[in-house]
Amino acid sequence: MGQFGVFLLLLTLGYVFGRMAESRHYRSIHKREALLRRVLVLPDKMPPIEFQQHNSTLVTGSVVISVDYFKTIAAALRGLVGGRVNAYESLLDRARREAILRMQEQARLKGASAVFNLKFETSRIGDNAGKALGSVEVLAYGTALIPQRHATA
């Protein structure tokens, strides 16, 4: 009985705090995406000819986001019947968008107008989580193109 109580407590804590963290994070993502819309991010390999006179440099953005207890249990249950795992979908969505935003912030600090050749790298960090997801790291990187009047050698 005691063990079940602890389980329920963890589940409730995970649900309440996880929900709070997620909606707070989404609010901040939406706000910053609107602010940074001017820094173009494209997965194109070759920049168009207009960028001939720009300087280029590597920019990166990364984030490690952890699951909460509720998501772990929800995903484990979903694993029994198969299908979409909503709990993990939103987690990865947040991580990818956050990584792009951090990369855009770095690009803006360098005076860039666009980031080309966007690449992602996703890895799982979950030594203490056993078979569950634990936490996930997403790295976004690309080449920032800086108009030459902003150039800082």
Binding site: F17, A21, E22, I65, S66, D68, T72
Partner: peptide, 16 residues
């Protein structure tokens, strides 16, 4: 800290 975060969710700033 990461173990605790696995209950509550959120960013692991130390790992980042």
């Amino acid at each position: 800290m990461a173990g605790l975060k696995n209950i509550f969710g959120g960013e692991l700033k130390g790992y980042t």
